[in-house]
């Protein structure tokens, strides 16, 4: 399927350093067109957050990249291979974090991780050794639960085990579909530290989907917004906010009265305020558009 409808012509110009390349990716379920020409590239070692409303096709996109689903058309490469044709050697270089439920309930945490890690032994790469299990269990904060049966773990502990399973083979590319759904704030923070470690120390390329914009901003080098089956925004959180509005809102009070002013040059404006009124100024607040403002504005623009 994919080979027939692949884009012709410019294949030789494709950047070979990219970990993930997607060109004109299309996916239809019967008459329902979920993806209508998705384009993006992820460089090796980049951390990308894929955002979008429910039903925008985030999970479909990730499943196509994981090789779990055949696309209707387009050019897709992960580590230089078309995912649906990826062999076991290719599979060994990927990590997939699944939303598990109750599988392997009777296994013990270290037992399952050790067993699953052994699948990577024939593909061992001296530069990227599989994780030491004790070290991995510690990295996801499950040391106290290492000997426990998996069906005795709490929801958050299970999700951390899912992450550990996803990275046990020390993948070059890691896919995370809503990894922190159901995490408490502490578990979320620990997870963020882990993602930073994977990205900084191991140079892992990471693609994650999330509904948590704060999380996306903290973790991602670059944000992709998927809406209506297309990528409607692609850039760093800062670049995206500047696309929508360069203005910052300045709020202050003077003589019991409250004021708001939108300006591109917040620093200059505030300097002017102080020069004019000095100590009369109170309650000063300068606020740039947050990622949430930007996200909502981009979606609104797309719907219009």
């Amino acid at each position: 399927m994919g080979a027939v409808s692949e884009l012709e012509g410019d294949l030789d110009q494709v950047n070979t350093d990219a970990a993930i390349e997607v060109r004109d990716l299309r996916m239809a379920y019967g008459p329902k067109r979920v993806l209508q020409g998705v384009d993006f590239t992820v460089g090796a070692g980049e951390v990308i957050a894929l955002l979008g409303p429910n039903g925008a096709g985030k999970t479909t996109t990730i499943e196509i990249l994981e090789g779990f689903r055949a696309p209707s058309g387009g050019h897709v490469r992960v580590l230089g291979t078309e995912p649906i044709r990826g062999d076991e050697r290719w599979r060994a270089r990927l990590g997939v974090v699944l939303q598990s439920w109750r599988d392997h309930g009777r296994w013990r945490v270290h037992q399952l991780l050790h067993h699953l890690s052994r699948y990577y032994e024939p593909y061992a790469n001296p530069a990227r050794r599989p994780f030491d299990i004790a070290e991995l269990i510690d990295a996801v904060g499950l040391t106290e639960q290492a000997g426990q049966r998996i069906n005795r773990l709490s929801g958050g502990q299970r999700r951390r085990l899912d992450v550990a399973i996803g990275i046990v083979g020390r993948p070059e590319v890691l896919f995370l579909d809503e990894p922190t759904a159901g995490f408490d704030p502490q578990a979320r923070r620990d997870f963020h530290d882990l993602v930073h470690r994977l990205s900084d120390l191991d140079d892992t390329t990471i693609l994650l989907t999330t509904h948590d914009l704060d999380e996306a901003e903290k973790l991602a080098d670059r944000i992709l917004i998927l809406s209506g089956g297309r990528i409607v925004a692609d850039g760093s959180p800062d670049q995206l906010s500047r696309q929508i509005s360069r203005d910052a809102q300045v709020r202050w009070s003077r003589g019991g009265e409250h004021f708001v002013h939108a300006t591109e040059d917040a620093t200059g404006f505030v300097r002017g305020l102080f020069e004019q009124y000095g100590t009369e100024i109170g309650d000063l607040e300068v606020r740039r558009a947050t990622l949430e403002d930007t996200y909502m504005a981009i979606l609104k623009r797309e719907e219009a």
Binding site: R91, D103, L116, G169
Partner: peptide
């Protein structure tokens, strides 16, 4: 049961996992 609880999918995400 194991299609429903994800055991099978987990096997699929591993190299040679389905065979195992």
């Amino acid at each position: 049961v194991e299609r429903e609880d994800g055991t099978l999918l987990r096997a699929k995400a591993l190299p040679q996992g389905m065979l195992g």
